[in-house]
Simulated assay, not measured.
Amino acid sequence: MPVGILYSVSEQYGGIGREMLNGIMLAIEEVNANEAMDFTLAPVIYDPGCQLENYYRYCRELLYRHGVKHIVGCYTSASRKVILPLIEGTNAMLWHTARYEGYESSDHVIYMGAVPNQHVLPMLDYVLKHERPEVYHVGSNYIWSEEIDRITRDMLDMHEGKMVASRFMGLGETDVTPIILDILARRPPVILITLVGISAYRFYQVWKAMSVEYAFLREAAPTRLSLTLCEQEVAMIGAEAVEGCLVSAVYFHSIDNVQNQKFASCYRQRFGEHAVPTVDAEAAWMSGQFLAKGIQASGSDDPPLVREAVYGIELDAPNGKTRINRENNHASLTPRLARIGADGKFHLLWQAPSPVSPDPWLTWSDLSR
């Protein structure tokens, strides 16, 4: 059975795309080696190179030329939204693996990444308990950062906090010095960073370089919050540039459970002894596992039948027990907070006692808690 893979593994956020590709490929190889499965999955891979027009063109090729019914892919919300009409118009299924801003629920998408009540709200809860609630937000100029900004403002307003400033940069933009100088002038206690790809890498590296001259950036440094940093990016940026950052995610390589130990071991065997799985790789891996189990349970790769079968499956995943919510097609996931140490590792500070049901519309989550 052909499965479309649509991840950008080149250009400004290609590093994350590579992690996602690794995750789904590992899952497909495990499924194909499993004698209990009476089918095999054949990946058809395209690299859109972070260009929205390529996402649309390659998605169309996957659907019409290759006849795929399931596509695993997309990192940015912009890329997801540009292909969604094609997915819905052909009654196909998109397995979306990235953390995202929520406020969407399509019958033709299985959302494997965390939504705000699973990663944004836990981080803001921590800020409200441990920091002065004055936040300076710097992010990439697209849907995800804009929605995170709105949610953060709403929660701060409810707790008599404030958004000191919001600064957005174009995807791939690297001139971060003016923003860091503005931070120096305003001296906020908390920085929320939703930059992605090379924009984020440059921000952390320039911050480190400027800290030599500006004591505030090293001695009285504000708490830096990230919703995107992962192990692979720390290796790219350099641990010394991101040491102390507080990161919210549903998966870290440092999770201590049997499922994660097995997953990490298989990941190293497949991609090299120094390879470390990330939250993006784990989400893509889960997509492949759910897809295969859904096909097996339904006896078909027909998207509606697979979707219905998936609702009845619980996956004992590295991040914890995971199910797909029938009401909104999003995954239950276990929120966690970690701080990056001088060793470049993510040291867990907190984790939810059990998986948290997805609330993509923030209809029942209490922002005033």
Rank of each mutant, 00 (worst) to 15 (best):
G4A: 08
S8I: 13
V9H: 01
S10W: 11
G15H: 05
V31W: 12
N32E: 15
N32L: 13
M37L: 09
F39H: 09
P43D: 00
V44Q: 05
D47T: 04
R60I: 00
L62D: 06
H66C: 09
G67M: 06
V68L: 11
K69T: 10
V72L: 03
Y75K: 00
Y75W: 14
P85A: 12
I87V: 13
W95I: 11
R99F: 12
D107C: 08
H108T: 11
V109Y: 05
I110E: 03
L121N: 02
P122S: 08
D125S: 12
Y126N: 07
P133V: 00
Y136H: 03
N141M: 13
W144G: 12
M158G: 12
M158V: 01
G161P: 15
V164R: 02
S166P: 14
S166T: 12
G172H: 14
T177Y: 11
P178Q: 08
I179W: 07
R186F: 00
V190G: 00
L192M: 14
V196F: 07
G197L: 04
R202E: 14
F203Y: 15
Y204D: 07
W207V: 05
M210G: 03
Y214W: 12
A215P: 04
F216S: 06
R224L: 14
L225T: 10
E231I: 00
Q232L: 10
V234S: 07
A235D: 15
G238K: 12
E240H: 14
E243Y: 06
S248N: 07
S254A: 13
N257I: 00
Q259F: 01
F263M: 03
A264P: 11
S265T: 11
C266D: 13
H274E: 15
T278A: 06
E282P: 03
W285E: 05
W285S: 01
M286I: 12
L291Q: 04
K293Y: 10
G294N: 05
Q296Y: 14
P303A: 04
V306D: 09
V310K: 02
Y311L: 05
I313E: 02
N329Y: 09
H330D: 05
A331R: 08
R336W: 01
R339M: 12
R339G: 09
F346E: 10
L348K: 02
L349N: 09
W350P: 15
S354P: 00
D359K: 08
P360A: 05
T363N: 14
D366R: 00
D366G: 00
